[in-house]
């Protein structure tokens, strides 16, 4: 699949933002005073920046609000509702807390909504039977893992972040490994109904088209192993090393920055690695 910059930025930044909001909501981050305000501002900035980036993926961004309509059947629509609900509830929660009042019950609701938003984002991909690599429960699991890990790093919890980073590294490695073997039931023979052996002889067109640009993306697979190694080091091992350094003021921010930077590469691979059944008609 085509690794669109807008979707990579969206899922990475919003994921981190909603992950941090989940922690703030549950009272697991600084929630009062200037520190609390700064933490909430960072979470909102990340979530909203990601959502703004996602609109650049739309052909007609001026119609984006129409996406709220079909929440009954569409995961994309559900995601829009959950994101809006999370941001509203968490804004109220933050204001109450900054005023010095307790808001844990509302915060817990916001926290659950934040995680549901990340899960809904992942379900947009996981629901697609046409992309066997995504069509699996590991997709939401990995998205939620990234959101919680980034949130914990940004909230400044050293030991829990280290544990999450190590667990996520193992989980991502396992998900890649399992994804490599999941090719789906559709073959070129079943897709064309011809056989016993079918090979493309001539494409329908001389240059590329929307389908080949969007769904028959092949560049990444050549560098798959190298990119995965870089992703593993940057997203999980380097931040882990930062956290192992004795307490220094910059260790946690640096670890968070490395993790989010690495997540961009991992997310790039999430798209670039994934093969769509329509590629069977072309290659």
């Amino acid at each position: 699949m085509h690794p669109a910059a807008s979707l990579i930025l969206f899922s990475t930044l919003s994921g981190a933002g909603f992950g941090l909001l989940a922690l703030i909501g549950a009272g697991l981050a600084r929630t009062t005073g200037w520190a609390g305000l700064a933490e909430a501002a960072l979470a909102f900035a990340l979530a909203i920046a990601g959502l703004a980036a996602s609109t650049f993926h739309l052909g007609r961004p001026e119609r984006a609000l129409k996406a709220f309509r079909e929440w009954r059947s569409s995961w994309l629509s559900r995601e829009a509702w959950l994101a809006a609900a999370t941001l509203s509830i968490m804004a109220i929660t933050t204001l109450i807390r900054l005023a010095g009042l307790p808001a844990l019950p509302l915060g817990l609701v916001g926290s659950a909504l934040a995680l549901a938003t990340v899960a809904a984002t992942a379900m947009i991909y996981a629901q697609l039977r046409t992309v066997p690599r995504w069509n699996h429960w590991t997709t939401p699991a990995i998205f939620l893992g990234h959101a919680l890990t980034a949130g914990t790093l940004l909230a400044g919890h050293r030991l829990p972040a280290a544990i999450l980073l190590a667990a996520l590294a193992v989980a991502q490695f396992a998900a890649w490994h399992a994804g490599d073997r999941r090719t789906g039931a559709t073959t070129r023979e079943s897709a064309t109904g011809l056989g016993p052996r079918v090979r493309p002889f001539e494409a329908p067109h001389t240059s590329d088209n929307y389908l080949t640009r969007e769904m028959v993306f092949v560049v990444a697979r050549k560098h798959r192993v190298r990119l995965r190694s870089i992703g593993l080091v940057l997203a999980y091992l380097a931040p882990l090393a930062c956290l192992a350094i004795p307490p220094a003021p910059l260790a946690l921010p640096l670890a968070a920055l490395l993790h989010i930077g690495g997540t961009l590469i991992v997310r790039w691979l999430f798209f670039a690695d994934a093969e769509h059944t329509v590629a069977l008609y072309y290659r």
């Binding site: 961004p61 129409k66 697609l128 389908l211 008609y281």
Partner: peptide, 25 residues
Amino acid sequence: QCIGCGLCAWACPYGAREQDPVAKV
């Protein structure tokens, strides 16, 4: 009503839908 998100083209196994390069629907 189309916002040009392209999700329907991703959901189709047959490559039956294409986004128009000018109208973006």
